[in-house]
Design a protein around this nucleic acid. Structure first.
Lengths: 156, 156
DNA sequence: TGACACTGAGTGTTACAACACCTATCATTA
DNA sequence: TAATGATAGGTGTTGTAACACTCAGTGTCA
């Protein structure tokens, strides 16, 4: 049987409400899985957020995307997209081109090096996901996704 | 009906697996709810992690806890506990006493000011949790907690 | 009793997140 | 067509997360 959160964090008192219990379980689980992901990406020289950016740009490989479009598609909030793209450009993972029509626009593209990182990670990531969640049934995973979708509904 | 993740992040392609879908939903939901929490705590001059520390110390008010004990009870990983407690000590929220028996130990206690912050936040937090998750039934919240507990089981 | 390992706390350094602010370019309209 | 506002991108600054490392005090055992 899986260990309950109260045991994990050695909390003596019960949670104040099922709201609180669910909330803390969400945060805790994301933290654990996110840390795991960070370790996974580290040998490849990127962060989880950068992996996210690469996947977004891969999805719009032909056209490229402007800074704000990338930011709006991010899984987690990222207020300083400019400097994150700076770093990725320095690392050769993306490249930016200023639009000649509307000179305010700068379009960002994934580079061949960026695509290589994604390709190298593809199997590793899938394998890790299966290792972490492989003990859950399809039905459970679907139910979890639905409940989380509902949990987000009132926020924002 | 709640908006699905793929719409939120404007992802054209379907997820590669239910593992991936669940994983990204966990991270996304924690990010959204976590950001909300940060905004809630900000007017009180503390971060979500500091709120977590205060609650942990409140739970061991009489004895106090050493740095590592606090760290091990944290909801999210916190490698630099020392300087976080430094900041909280500077803010008057906690105080530290070096043990005279074993002079390696430093015991941290919550102060009256720290307890006041917790007390002021108590209602605000509960209200916010209800606002965010109040549309979910007890049964759903319990199911969500159980599924998340299972999802964490293979990590660490 | 001196060397060694262990445990707990703290420090140095780097890179990054967060926030507010600024600049350039374009669209609109009085 | 000059002023105004909107939009896209970038910059300055501060605090802090992350990582590796050091230091101090204690136990232990050859």
């Amino acid at each position: 049987m899986a260990k309950e959160l109260r045991d994990e964090i050695q909390q003596p008192k019960p949670f104040r409400s099922t709201y609180e219990e669910a909330m803390l379980n969400i945060v805790r689980t994301a933290s654990i899985l996110g840390d795991d992901g960070s370790q996974l990406f580290k040998p490849f020289g990127i962060t989880a957020a950068q992996y996210n950016v690469l996947r977004i740009l891969k999805g719009s490989e032909a056209e490229g995307l402007c800074r704000n479009a990338v930011r709006d598609r991010m899984l987690t909030r990222m207020p300083d997209m400019t400097r994150m793209l700076d770093r990725m450009e320095d690392a050769g993972l993306v490249e930016r081109v200023r639009d000649s029509e509307d000179r305010r626009h700068v379009t960002t593209h994934i580079t061949a090096a960026g695509k290589k990182v994604l390709k190298d990670l593809e199997g590793v990531v899938a394998e890790r996901q299966k290792k972490l969640l492989g003990h859950m049934t399809e039905k459970e995973l679907k139910a979890l996704t639905e409940l989380l979708t509902k949990a987000r509904d009132r926020a924002r």
